[in-house]
Write a protein that binds this DNA or RNA. Sequence first.
DNA 1: GCTTGGTTTGAAAGCGCTTTGAAAGATTCG
DNA 2: CGAATCTTTCAAAGCGCTTTCAAACCAAGC
Lengths: 342, 342
Amino acid sequence: MNLKQLSDHLGLSQTTVSRALNGYPEVSESTRERVQLEADRVGYRPNARARGLATGRAQAIGHVLPVSAQHEMVNPVFGDFIAGAGETYLKSNYDLQLSLVPDGEEEAAYRRLATTGTVDGIIVHGPRMDDPRIGLLHELGLPFVVHGRASNEALPYSWLDVDNYRAFHRATQFLAELGHRKIALINGLEFMDFAHRRRQGYLSALEAAGITPRDDLMSSAEMTEVNGHHAMRDMLNRPDPPTAVLTSSLILAIGARRALDEAGLQLARDVSIITHDDDLSYLRNGQDEAIFTATRSSVRDAGRIVAEMVLERIDVPDAPPRTVMMEAELIIGRSTGPCPTP
Amino acid sequence: MNLKQLSDHLGLSQTTVSRALNGYPEVSESTRERVQLEADRVGYRPNARARGLATGRAQAIGHVLPVSAQHEMVNPVFGDFIAGAGETYLKSNYDLQLSLVPDGEEEAAYRRLATTGTVDGIIVHGPRMDDPRIGLLHELGLPFVVHGRASNEALPYSWLDVDNYRAFHRATQFLAELGHRKIALINGLEFMDFAHRRRQGYLSALEAAGITPRDDLMSSAEMTEVNGHHAMRDMLNRPDPPTAVLTSSLILAIGARRALDEAGLQLARDVSIITHDDDLSYLRNGQDEAIFTATRSSVRDAGRIVAEMVLERIDVPDAPPRTVMMEAELIIGRSTGPCPTP
DNA sequence: GCTTGGTTTGAAAGCGCTTTGAAAGATTCG
DNA sequence: CGAATCTTTCAAAGCGCTTTCAAACCAAGC
């Protein structure tokens, strides 16, 4: 059933039916009701492509996910982020279009989205420190919001980020206050902006505590369980092993914990772990009591807000960019304790 | 730049330019080349909506994700599944459209996708034992493929599934052969088809080994780390605790392992764990050697194949349904051992 | 040289909707 | 009661593409 059929059926013009269904004021209440009723009865739905062609809007937001070619890895936080964004889209009647793009082919993907007109706006995932995508999107003139930031980008743009620097500064400080001096960092890939900032926060807190950073206590790799295990095991096997570790994700922390178990070391007593926690639905950091001491920030909330932000930008394209900084909460769990005295 | 401008610019009709770019045979090689060159130069891309309206195809596949309203949980395997499907779509120039739909609103969502014409086909995620969606999609006449199966569905339909029954039968048998008699099951929600089948496989293997199933050794809940921990802890606190456990996901297994640690029990020696492993990119079950003994089946491969299947169905709508059964591989890891003698 | 058949090109219709500009109908007011 | 105003409806254009059908062109055949 299309608009023409419906309007013929009702003995009205397409114009009137269209207006009635879209809530325009110049149609009388009685006809509107009649139209609405009949539309519901026959289950009429306007064809999205035709409407899009006429209005010039796609009613869809594009999410471009970089997929690491090396490890074919999709960021595990993505599911929850998208769930948050999905809530927003559901309310506003937007669709979500997902593009999985291998590293390096991103420019082409963005250009395609822009010129092909399949989306009205874009959400940028996983920004690097130097990220050419932001300049590109500016040039393309497509509304966008970045989940995270790109340190070396001068142009203004809309973003939402967790204060990663502060979170890791605070967490490191917390460990230092517990008496730890050998504090390690098991980080994500440090060309990723979030990981870079976390490292800066970690370093600055070490410095504030008068601790000299050690290269052999810093690791950086994709945030998988196996890599967390690997990094922790290697550090424990070195001459002067750490008594405390910061990890950049719960999954890394779980890997690190496994390495501790294998080494016969006890969490908190022998080695403290503090992790960043994205509050993923399937991997909550404990229920009532936190398992790991953590800096927590809900990635689902982030998704919800970022989606709202991009819809705003579409509504008011030349509003000044909006930025949102989320603070991570420091949760004290059972994975940290005072520095053991040898 | 649109088609009209491009063709004016070239001094050709829209017809010819359109044909040249879409590879139709009735245009001479020389003009085709000229058109293609100019199109590339100016970066012309046909507007997707206009093309879609003209051709009646959306060049997009819809993925409808049920989001558990209770726990607001998104299935963690989804990221990897979608990565696999994304590979296929990239090759075939399809877009992926994602709808996150709260439990219960699914019918409306499918109807919308169908009548609104935003997608050419659908992939059904997370089928239940009795799943009304399959009948609905039949009725709507939209090509679809199910990832998993719906046990109580009589209509023929295309699906791809892991042989969950066989996998869990085999795994249970494996434990029985190690001498275990008190074998527990920590399963997903059992109205989900996969979980139901796993339970059946488990039960039949118990029976074959002459073991009477015990209700207090079976748990069923959403597959989160916390639930895995919970279930394991509760079982260990009961009078006659299990010496071996099957879990339905690696995340449940990690939770269960935590409960063992807390109880001072050693994995494999005191309690064996065997888990299903979806081979997630961020949560590999060890690198060279498997951490957990597991029934493994790559959900990413599944995504790739399911996507191919739905594209086939779109190409040849009245081909008979195709079904694919994947066998899970039994991987022997370090989490299982002979039944301890008290 | 004129017809025939094959190859290229183009004009125009159509996909299903929104929206402009005009007209018809209803209402008010002097 | 007729003019003026407001409300309600509609015909038609347009969004940017594909595709049908017709026309133009060219080389070959008699």
